[in-house]
Write a protein that binds this DNA or RNA. Structure first.
Lengths: 201, 201
DNA sequence: GGCAACTCATGACATCTGTCATGAGGAACT
DNA sequence: AGTTCCTCATGACAGATGTCATGAGTTGCC
């Protein structure tokens, strides 16, 4: 019997996935959590075999949870399910020791199969997401460029970005100009959206 | 027995919700669809009592589906479930004749209850979403301002917005300037994000 | 008919942004 | 020690953008 921890902030989906997994004879959902913090706390107590974590949760993001779990419970395999598969997340997730990475568009059969796969030490990444990640390539942005571009995401004026990054406005413009060049965009807003889509920020 | 059509592009969630609803004695999921078009086509054939539609789907948006269903199958009550509850959608949905509007954070009990409620002619809107919609208020934007602002969402330069809206660049700047003033933003990108958050575009 | 609101446009002006040249300082690698 | 890259900064310039005044044409309402 594989003991599973399920974490997703959407009750409906969490409950539904629990119902699905419980239909399998060899799977058992032993705990559920609605936030990242709750997931970690619960995992410490119930020590599940496999943790199925939603990528986007109100507090901690799924990858952060995976990182904690990998450190605290090495025997627990973590897999992530997500609605919006952005390439950058996959890369971060694998680096955090995640063993499975799936979009929520997969069927329940696949979900159950992957739970078994990661439990026996295997890995599974959704082929479509993997292809996307490969085609997205590595980020050409320097760390600082990425920082600044991220602050530009919400549409703030340069003045504010400079304050929030503790940089001079001129420097901010230089980084943004460089980022715009690297992304092929025609202004920082387009560049920011592009970089976000590629998972670079 | 209430006959239900379920539409959601995420297999996992659709299958899971179907499993949950089927646990109820008086509910029966008679059809499932992964896209808006598919949902409409299927509904024409199976003529369900209640349609449970996801708001965001690859082709048609949930509200558009609801509109078609209301016209073609007046006996079928439509309800919408969604992950990201933006105020504007709720307003549009109610205008389209949707009888139930829920975030996916609700429990399965609530889902089943609401299915029964809309089937008997009642209405149900999640209280939190309703509150949000009220606090968002009515859009102060004129239709054209909203159009132009929407084109500005992706960060395109004015030149391109003008082409896509078939307007002169000067006119586009006027509309955007007006929209920026009304939203209290400091540039069109911030204004666009703000308006989107309020559900105005 | 008169009024108000919306749509579309032009021109002028100030400011904001994007681009480029340039340079100092630090870290990493050979 | 030399090279390369990143970080941070300044100054200058052109072009993009935001703001304002103004006006013509349309529609809907009283």
């Amino acid at each position: 019997m594989i003991r599973i921890l399920l974490a997703d902030d959407e009750h409906l989906i969490r409950g539904a996935m629990a119902a699905l997994l419980s239909l399998e004879d060899d799977l058992e959902v032993v705990a559920q959590a609605a936030t990242g913090a709750e997931a970690i706390a619960t995992a410490r107590v119930v020590r599940p075999d496999v943790a199925v974590i939603d990528l986007q949760m109100p507090d901690l993001d799924g990858v952060a949870v995976a990182q904690s779990l990998a450190r605290e419970l090495p025997t627990c395999s973590t897999m992530i399910v997500t609605s919006h598969g952005r390439p950058g997340h996959l890369k971060r997730a694998l680096a955090a020791g995640v063993r499975g990475f799936l979009p929520k568009t997969v069927s329940s059969d696949v979900l159950a199969t992957v739970v078994r796969t990661v439990h026996t030490g295997g890995r599974y990444v959704d082929p479509a997401l993997a292809a996307e990640a490969i085609s997205a390539g590595d980020s050409p942005l320097t760390p600082r460029e990425a920082d600044v571009l991220e602050l530009a995401l919400e549409g703030a004026p340069i003045e504010e970005i400079a304050r929030r990054a503790s940089l001079s406005p001129g420097t901010v413009r230089n980084y943004l100009s460089s980022a715009v060049g690297k992304t092929g965009a025609s202004n920082r807003h387009e560049a920011a959206r592009f970089a976000r889509a590629k998972g670079w920020i």
